[in-house]
Design a protein around this nucleic acid. Structure first.
Length: 642
DNA sequence: TCAAGATGCGCG
DNA sequence: AAAGCGCGCATCTTGA
């Protein structure tokens, strides 16, 4: 690997011990809400109204009524502090950015994220297994600790959309100052709790990501209006055709109604309900007959009516959901918002601490979040400036590699390091009882059957990693082969389950703790939360620690190189980062991707997490005119190279 | 009439 | 008895 001076990355501080300093500023803002929502800094109709902040270095509470261009004292205070403290700091970062502060240099301690880290997976809860969500609102955090709660009157006003402009100033100011005081007390208790339980570095890393997300949210994503127009028109035409065909065939049932569809297929068409091994029909949790895609794929048509119905039903569901969930919104955005839309990236929602996303209604009430856009529609996104490109980097087979590391499985390690090993080919080969070499060679020669086999296997390959065991005989053959091949990993996962059954808690090697208060073992040896226990550590280390660490380093490397006007992150989905890239900065983009998703992750995990991640990491990079276009280049990184 | 629950389907 | 995990949004159904 060639030497690159960007190795001496200067992250702001890069040390969680910064939180031990007493030079910090606690802050809370009130906003004039003009968008009818929550006063996000993204919306130009919203304006900063009041800033209250407590400066620990100088002492005393300050408050200042003023807009985002009238907060010079606040800006100076936060820039001089070692870190800032607030509840849901992404909001404050967004406003500080509008105030003109360089938020990349501001370290945060977010008390909402701190509570989320302390709670492990309990903030998300697990209603399916009888664990309710735990609120991490400032009020809830304070009440749990016996601290003062919010002024209920002002709280009700704000929750009901009353503008700050219409409330008595003294009341608003009183509430804002109270929130700052509560936040500071909460911070001190959380800092101690995190320190005692060895989780400060987790909070620190989450908080380093926050300004990156605030910036991505502000930037938004850009649609190719011409492609959106063509695609929407074609989908609408197709839906109209399918609707009339469907109506003619069924006599006018509503294809969106699972109830009507179930009646039609089981009563009118006479399909048999799918049955479990015991012979009883499989039903929805509510006891209704199932009418979903899985069932339709398993039904075998015997009559012409049945065959046509299955065909049309499959297409109509796909086309109508594409329109109502994506294309209608995209069209609005192209027509009325210059083809750019925004969404939130949430840090405190999921059980495994990966991000989630929420759409933002911009024209009608519709919204689209950024993590479940159909792959077929990635091609509708391009860069907002002519001639620019879209670059996407993802962690190659990240969860597989993380599993190999956590399980310390020698076979998995060897497989990952072997350039002639393809796990999807192995899955296909095992399932169909063919020799691996034959399938691999045919795949490499580009033979169609081998490509199809690999495609078939791909969606099943890692099911056994998360406890999957049921399926067709072919599938089950692979699942068994997987568990046998990676038996060391499988045993480690069983150990996790034993630990959970004994302690109702799982302590991960990097410090995050998961809690399973309702864990129990049935008389048949089945653990009610077993599959979650198999999954959480792997999903979490991969997509809640490693990818955020990579993204943080990516962002700071771009800024340290002064490329921030040429390489602009616009989205992240679990294991990937999407950027708009100036055509002259493609090589720089590749270099920064390789370093941040490889070297930086390893060195940060060792230094800050005391975790020596010794399975090689890889990155896949695609660059093209539209999202998802262009040939993928794969990079492998191992410590030996550095 | 409206909110909450159930269901289906998109992504990693 | 059977059983991959994690999410958010649109639509229909249910129940007050």
């Amino acid at each position: 690997m060639r030497k690159n001076k960007t190795h001496d990355l200067s992250l702001p501080g890069v040390d969680p011990s910064v939180y031990l300093s007493d030079n910090y500023v606690v802050l809370d803002f009130e906003v004039y809400v003009g968008d009818g929502h929550f006063g996000s800094s993204l919306d130009p109709r919203n304006h900063l109204a009041l800033a209250c902040y407590s400066n620990m270095a100088t002492g005393g509470m300050r408050s200042h009524w003023g807009g985002e261009f009238d907060q010079a004292d606040l800006c100076r205070a936060v820039e001089k502090a070692d870190f800032i403290v607030g509840h849901n700091l992404k909001y404050e970062y967004g406003w500080l950015r509008r105030c003109g502060v360089d938020i990349s240099r501001l370290i945060g301690f977010d008390t909402q994220i701190a509570e989320y880290v302390l709670l492990g997976n309990l903030a998300a809860g697990d209603p399916e297994h009888g664990v309710p969500r735990t609120s991490i609102s400032l009020d809830a955090c304070c009440i749990r600790r016996g601290l003062a709660s919010k002024d209920p009157i002002v709280d009700i006003w704000i929750k009901n959309g009353i503008s700050v402009a219409d409330m008595p100033r003294a009341w608003v100011e009183g509430r804002c100052k109270q929130d700052v005081k509560s936040t500071q007390l909460l911070f001190k208790l959380q800092r101690e709790a995190l320190r005692r339980s060895g989780r400060v570095h987790l909070l620190y890393t989450r908080c380093l990501l926050t300004p990156v997300l605030a910036t991505i949210e502000t930037t938004g994503v850009h649609l190719d209006a011409e492609r959106v127009r063509e695609t929407t028109a074609s989908y609408r035409g197709r839906l109209a055709e399918l609707e009339s065909e469907f109506a003619a065939l069924t006599g006018g049932i509503n294809f969106r109604s699972p109830k009507q569809v179930a009646e039609y297929i089981y009563d009118t068409l006479g399909f048999e309900e799918p049955k479990g091994r015991d012979g009883a029909p499989k039903r929805t949790p509510g006891g209704n007959r199932i009418a979903n895609k899985r069932v339709f794929d398993s039904l075998k048509a015997k009559t012409e009516d049945q065959r046509r119905f299955l065909e049309i039903k499959r297409d109509i569901g796909h086309v109508s959901s594409a329109l109502s969930k994506n294309l209608d919104y995209f069209q609005e955005i192209c027509d009325e918002r210059n083809s750019i839309f925004h969404a939130q990236l949430n840090q405190t929602v999921t059980a495994t601490h990966r991000l989630s996303s929420t759409g933002i209604p911009e024209v009608s009430e519709k919204s689209v979040q950024l993590t479940n856009i159909p792959r077929a529609f990635k091609r509708l996104f391009n860069a907002r400036r002519d001639g620019w490109l879209i670059g996407e980097v993802d962690g190659a087979q990240l969860e597989y590699r993380v599993a190999a590391f956590l399980g310390n499985d020698p076979r998995a390690r060897d497989d990952i390091s072997d350039p002639a090993f393809d796990i999807h080919i192995l899955a296909g080969a095992e399932a169909t009882r063919r020799p691996y070499e034959e399938c691999y060679a045919a795949y490499k020669r580009g033979e169609e059957w081998a490509i199809a086999l690999r495609q078939w296997a791909k969606i099943r390959t890692f099911r056994p990693l998360y406890g999957g065991s049921s399926g067709t005989p072919d599938e089950q053959r692979w699942f068994a082969a997987f568990k046998e091949r990676y038996s060391v990993l499988a045993d480690k996962q069983k150990d996790w389950v034993y630990e959970v059954l004994e302690h109702k808690e799982l302590r991960t090697p990097w410090g995050l703790r998961f809690y399973f208060p309702t864990a129990r073992l049935s008389s048949t040896g089945y653990c009610n939360v077993g599959n979650a226990v198999y999954n959480y550590p792997i999903q979490s280390l991969a997509t809640a620690e490693i990818i955020p660490i990579a993204i943080i380093h990516f962002w700071h490397r771009v800024r340290a190189s002064k490329f921030e006007d040429f390489i602009i992150p616009v989205n992240t989905i679990h294991d990937s980062l999407v950027c708009e890239v100036h055509p002259d900065y493609v090589e720089q983009f590749r270099d920064i991707c390789r370093l941040s998703f490889g070297h930086d992750v390893g060195s940060y995990l060792a230094r800050v997490y005391n975790l020596h991640f010794d399975v090689p990491l890889g990155a896949g990079i695609k660059i093209g005119t539209h999202w998802g276009s262009g040939e993928e280049t794969k990079y492998e990184y191992s410590k030996a190279e550095s």
